[in-house]
């Protein structure tokens, strides 16, 4: 049993190493993607200053910028995580390696563990770079911010997004041609309801109800409290707890649904493109 557990752990590193190799090969693409993400974050954040200029004197542009900066960063982090998990299935489909990966003697948990270990590390680094650039440009003062607490909140929120990502990766598994594009729908809906760029209170009642169950809502509120109000880590538990619970529900459900989809794919011959 022990040897089999260590073997599974070892096997999970296969995904970490492979993804690192892929990044190395596609490094120029990573730079493009980073530039895109920074430009995106900045243009959203400038809306804060823009509104101050256009709107009344009562609006505190700086405060608005901070609000939006945290929104873009947390959202970048969570969606990166999501896409790393779904894209890997999509890429394996595209390359035709999926049959070899699914034929290997590993548990799906091992597979996802390796994949998410990499995804979390990558997404944190990536988001960290954007944070550094944004802080410099807007001369944001982080001396009162609880950076450790913010990272903790983000990490706890990762779990649920990993679960959502696993569910999302079912789409490219079952729909070779359009599956990857369909995953965007999941991210767009979560963006709408989770209060990334506005407080969820402005949403219609029905959408607010959905916001309650979106794990991103708590991650965003928690990160804002940590970065903007410098809330001590112990008080952040109020945000970490629902995020952890959501994760504890989402990951097993994700794995279970993925298992069903995998069996369905093996029954109907969806793993290979041609006969």
């Amino acid at each position: 049993m022990i040897t089999s557990a260590t073997q599974q752990l070892r096997a999970s590193y296969a995904f970490v190493e492979r993804n690192a190799y892929l990044i190395r090969r596609y490094w120029s693409w990573e730079l493009v993607w980073l530039t895109y993400s920074i430009a995106n974050s900045l243009s959203v954040s400038y809306i804060g200053l823009g509104i101050e200029k256009m709107g009344g004197q009562n609006i505190d542009g700086r405060q608005l910028v901070l609000y939006l900066v945290v929104g873009t960063l947390v959202w970048r982090y969570l969606s990166l995580l999501f896409y790393w998990i779904t894209d890997m299935i999509a890429l394996e489909r595209w390359e035709g390696t999926i049959e070899y990966t699914l034929m290997a003697p590993i548990h799906r948990l091992t597979h996802m563990l390796g994949q998410t270990t990499f995804a979390v590390t990558y997404s944190l680094l990536f988001t960290g770079i954007i944070l550094a650039v944004t802080v410099k440009l807007f001369q944001i003062d982080l001396s009162n911010a609880n950076l450790v607490g913010a990272t903790l909140v983000m990490l706890s929120g990762s779990l649920s997004f990993i679960g959502v990502g696993i569910v999302g990766s079912i789409l490219p598994l079952l729909f070779p041609e359009r599956g990857a594009q369909m995953t965007h729908v999941i991210i767009a809906l979560l963006l709408l309801v989770s209060g990334v760029y506005y407080p969820v209170e402005v949403l219609p009642h029905a959408l607010q109800q959905i916001a309650v169950v979106s794990p991103a809502t708590y991650v965003l509120e928690g990160t804002r409290s940590a970065l903007l109000d410098g809330l001590p880590t112990i008080q952040l538990w109020a945000f970490v707890r629902p995020a952890l619970i959501a994760g504890a529900i989402a990951i097993p459900i994700g794995l279970w649904l993925f298992g069903l989809a995998e069996r369905y794919a093996k029954r109907t011959g969806k793993l290979h493109r041609n006969g």
Binding site: Q7, Q8, R10, A11, Y13, A14, E17, R18, Y21, L22, R25, Y26, L91, E95, G96, T97, E99, Y100, T101, M103, A104, P105, I106
Partner: peptide, 30 residues
């Protein structure tokens, strides 16, 4: 654990080298 397969289409991560692809394969099998 007992089997492996070679298919008619060689399926690889095409941007990766044989060493990188095979290292991945070897790790998958522990």
């Amino acid at each position: 654990r007992l089997i492996n397969r070679v298919s008619v289409e060689a399926s690889f991560f095409k941007k990766l080298s044989p060493m990188e692809n095979l290292s991945y394969g070897a790790r998958l099998y522990g």
